[in-house]
Computed example of a mutant assay.
Amino acid sequence: MQFQDKTLIEARCINYQQMRNAYADIMENGSVKAAYRTVTNPTNGEIMATNFTGYKRNPSTQIFDAATAKIKSISKDLGMTPQSRAELLDLSKDDDNGDSVKKLKELFG
C-alpha cells in the first residue's frame, strides 16, 4: 500500500466518524429546530414577547452532507466503487503481461 493510499484511508475514516457523529446529533436533536426572537423591555430587561421566526437547520446536517460527499469521493479515488474498479481494470489492460489485471481481480473479486 502506498503512502497516498494510507492518507486517503485515514481521511475516509475521519470523515466516516464525522458522518456518524453528525447523524447521532441529528437523531437526538432533529434536522430542524424552531427559532424564536425574544423581545425585551429596554428599560428593565423584562421579556415582553417571544416571537416564532421559522425553523433553523441543525448544523450537523451540513456536516453530514459534507462528510458523505468526501467519503464518496475518496472511495472513488481508492477504487472502492464499481465504476472506479472498472476504470482501474480498463487501465490495467494496457499492461503487456497482464499481471496487473490478475492482481486487481484478486483484490476486487
Score class of each variant (00 low, 15 high):
Lys70Gln: 10
Glu87Val: 07
Gln62Glu: 09
Gln17Ser: 06
Ser60Ala: 11
Ile74Cys: 05
Asp25Thr: 00
Ser73Phe: 05
Lys93Met: 13
Ile9Glu: 15
Ser100Phe: 13
Lys6Glu: 08
Ile71Cys: 11
Asp95Lys: 02
Pro82Arg: 04
Thr61Ser: 07
Ala24Arg: 06
Asp99Ile: 07
Ala49Asp: 13
Phe52Leu: 09
Thr53Trp: 11
Phe3Ser: 11
Phe52Asn: 01
Ala69Trp: 07
Val101Glu: 15
Lys6Cys: 10
Gly79Pro: 00
Ile71Ala: 03
Ala34Gly: 10
Leu78Lys: 02
Ser75Glu: 10
Gln17Met: 04
Ser100Met: 13
Thr50Asn: 15
Lys102Gly: 03
Gly79Asn: 02
Gln18Val: 02
Cys13Phe: 15
Gly45Pro: 07
Ser84Ala: 06
Gly109Pro: 00
Ile71Tyr: 03
Thr81Tyr: 09
Asn58Asp: 09
Asp96Thr: 11
Lys33Val: 13
Gln2Ser: 11
Asp99Gly: 04
Pro59Thr: 01
Ser100Gln: 14
Pro42Glu: 11
Gln18Met: 11
Tyr36Ala: 08
Ala35Asn: 08
Thr38Ile: 12
Tyr55Val: 10
Lys93Trp: 11
Arg20Phe: 00
Lys56Phe: 05
Arg85Thr: 01
Val101Trp: 03
Thr7Pro: 00
Met80Pro: 01
Leu89Phe: 10
Asn97Met: 14
Ile14Ser: 02
Ile26Gly: 01
Ile74His: 01
Gly109Leu: 04
Pro82Leu: 07
Thr81Lys: 07
Thr61His: 10
Ile63Gly: 03
Gln18Lys: 14
Asp95Tyr: 08
Ile47Asn: 10
Asn58Trp: 03
Ser60Glu: 00
